[in-house]
Amino acid sequence: MDQFFKEIKNQIETDFEKKSALQDLEHQFDVSIIPFKSKFNDKITILPNKLKSEENVSVFISEVVSNYEKFSKSVSELNAKFGQKERLQNKIVEESIYYLLISNYFQVLSNSYTNEVIRIQFVSEKENGIILTPEQVKSLLNFDKIDYQIYLISLLKLIEVIVEYTLNSVINQSIENESISSNYSISLINSQIVSKLQNGFQLLDLKNDILRKKYDSLKYNYQRLNKIVYDLTLRNLITTKIELL
C-alpha cells in the first residue's frame, strides 16, 4: 500500500510540473498573438473603401502558420497527458484558424470594394472566397485532418468581428457626414454573408456543447445587422449594388 501511494505522489508531482509547463507555454502563445490582435483592432476602424489591399497578406498568413507550427510542436513534444494538453492544443488551432479567416476576409473585401458594383465571391474551391473553406484552412496550416468543431467555432468568432466592423464602419461614415458613400453598403454585404452562414449552420445537428452555445448568439448578431440594413435602406443610404456570388 505504501509503495502504491508513493507512486501516486510521484505522478501527482509529474502532473503538476506538466501543468506548470503548459501554463508557461500558453502565456508565450498569448504574447505571440498580440501583434495579430493589434493588426485587426486597427483594421476594424478603417472604412471599407479605405482598406488597402495588402500585398504582404501572404507574409501575414505565413506568420500565423509558423506561429501555429511552433506552438503546436512545443505542445506535442511536451510529454503530458492528452487531457492536459487538449485545451491548449485546441486553443492554438482555434486562434490560428480565426486569424486566417479574418485576414482573408479583409483581404478579399479590400480587393472587391469599389464605388460601383461590389462583387464578392462567398466561397470558392480554387481561389479564396471571402470565407475560407475547411479544406483551404487545412492546406494552409498543413493539418492532416481538419477539426470541424474548431473550424466552426472560429467561423462564429469571425461573425462577431464582421458585426463589429459593420457597426464601426457605419458610425465612422456617419461622423464624416457624407450622406452618399459606398461605405454604407458594407452593412448589406455583411448581412448577406452572415445570412448565408446562418443558413449553413442550420444544417448542423448541434448537441448541447460549446459550439451550440456560441451558435445561439449568431441569431442576435444577424438581427443586429438586419436592423442596421433596414435603417440605412429607409434613409436611402445604401447606394452601391452588391453581388455576393
Binding site: 475547411p134 473550424y151 449553413g200 445537428d205
Partner: peptide, 20 residues
C-alpha cells in the same frame, strides 16, 4: 460548389460521426 457543399455538409457528417 456552394458553401453548404464546401463547409456545412462535410461538417455535419463529421460532427455526426463524433456524436455517434
Amino acid at each position: 460548389m456552394s458553401s453548404d457543399d464546401l463547409i456545412f455538409i462535410p461538417a455535419r457528417d463529421e460532427l455526426r460521426i463524433k456524436q455517434d
